[in-house]
């Protein structure tokens, strides 16, 4: 392996990592605010990409139905909850109606427009709306569930969303135009502008989330909600809203990842699963609680993957996953000092 090849691989690894980074960051977001380990996060990537593809083809994205039905069920549950708590029914209905109106407007606009930006926005909005719906239906009913139960619920969500993508869009890959088709020459190699966009968005998102949770009061309140739910409620922190909001944001980030990734690898129903898994592994290397570390984790994973692919493409995944373990051990040891038993 000469220097040029090594550089190529390194650049390659960074690009990989950028792809996984947004998913990794959304996983950290969800974990730090709700303690849910969301294995199904990769599906939002798929849905985001395919929804955009639908708009570009000039069709109404079938995901509209899913959002509509899911939203209706959530509304029904919320209304029931409001009645049981003897609170106003008008509020949830109004909220859902407002959100529904916005989504409908965006969808119609995207359906008729040629503007890529508007289509991306609409796709992003629709798929992000799935996040709180999933939260409402699977986590909110029993927020105190144990890790095992939440992990398996995540598996269940994955079992619903993965075949749904196949059902709604079929197995054929669909093309999505890039924001920019060019490539940036860097010495002997080049990187697609689109990849740079992905990296830029990932870095921005990471910094924003990091700053938000570390320095703002609201961010700290949201973190508190996951550490001690009841205590946070007594302090007036809207715990339920926190959960829905974080799922919304996480879905948005993952969908954005899908939108940006699709031009590079086409939108097809299998694209999200592996990205989600590798994002999860990378984020976990950062302990699932730390944004900068999780980005470092996914980038490390991306680089590992790149080099392992070069060394032996058949054993690539075995090498990468096997190397995850010593990294986790090392992290675990360093985390021991300030971690109490869980």
């Amino acid at each position: 392996m000469d220097l040029q090849t090594a550089l190529f691989l390194l650049a390659d690894g960074l690009t990989n990592g950028a792809v996984y980074a947004l998913v990794g960051v959304s996983l950290v977001l969800i974990y730090t605010t709700t303690r849910v380990v969301n294995i199904a996060q990769g599906e939002y990537v798929t849905f985001g990409a395919l929804t955009l593809a639908s708009f570009i083809e000039g069709a109404i994205a079938p995901v509209v139905w899913v959002v509509g039905i899911g939203g209706a069920v959530s509304l029904a549950l919320d209304v029931r909850q409001a009645i049981l708590n003897r609170r106003s029914v008008v509020r949830p209905v109004a909220q859902y109606a407002a959100i529904g109106a916005v989504l409908a407007a965006l969808t119609l606009a995207a359906w008729h427009t040629r503007s890529l930006a508007l289509q991306m926005l609409a796709a992003l909005a629709l798929v992000s709306a799935l996040g709180p719906i999933v939260y409402r239906l699977t986590v909110e009913p029993k927020p105190g569930s144990s890790t095992v139960v939440l992990v398996i619920i995540g598996v269940g969500v994955s079992m619903i969303m993965h075949p749904m993508a196949l059902l709604l869009w079929g197995p054929d890959p669909r093309s999505v135009p890039a924001i920019s088709d060019g490539r940036l020459p860097l010495g002997p190699m080049d990187i697609a502008y689109q990849s740079l966009f992905v990296m830029a968005v990932s870095i921005l998102a990471t910094l924003a989330l990091f700053a938000f949770f570390r320095f703002t009061l609201l961010g700290k309140a949201l973190r508190a909600a996951s550490v001690n739910r009841e205590g946070a409620q007594y302090c007036g922190i809207p715990v339920v809203l926190a959960g829905r909001l974080s799922f919304f944001l996480a879905a948005a980030l993952s969908a954005a990842s899908g939108l940006l990734l699709a031009p590079l690898v086409t939108a097809h129903y299998e694209m999200g699963f592996v990205v989600g898994l590798k994002g999860f592994v990378g984020a976990a290397m950062g302990g699932l609680v730390n944004y900068p570390l999780s980005v470092a984790g996914v980038v490390t994973l991306g680089a590992l993957e790149s080099f392992a692919s070069f060394l032996s493409s058949s054993y690539r995944d075995a090498l990468v996953f096997a190397l995850v373990i010593p990294i986790m051990l090392w992290r675990n040891r360093h985390a021991q000092e300030d971690l109490d038993e869980h």
Partner: peptide, 25 residues
């Protein structure tokens, strides 16, 4: 010996990792 000492969600992740590594093998 290597992984059971991991705490919290690290253990499921480690089991996931070697499960996949062995499958690839």
């Amino acid at each position: 010996r290597i992984t059971l000492r991991l705490k919290g969600h690290s253990l499921p992740l480690a089991t996931l990792a070697w499960g996949m590594a062995i499958y690839v093998c």
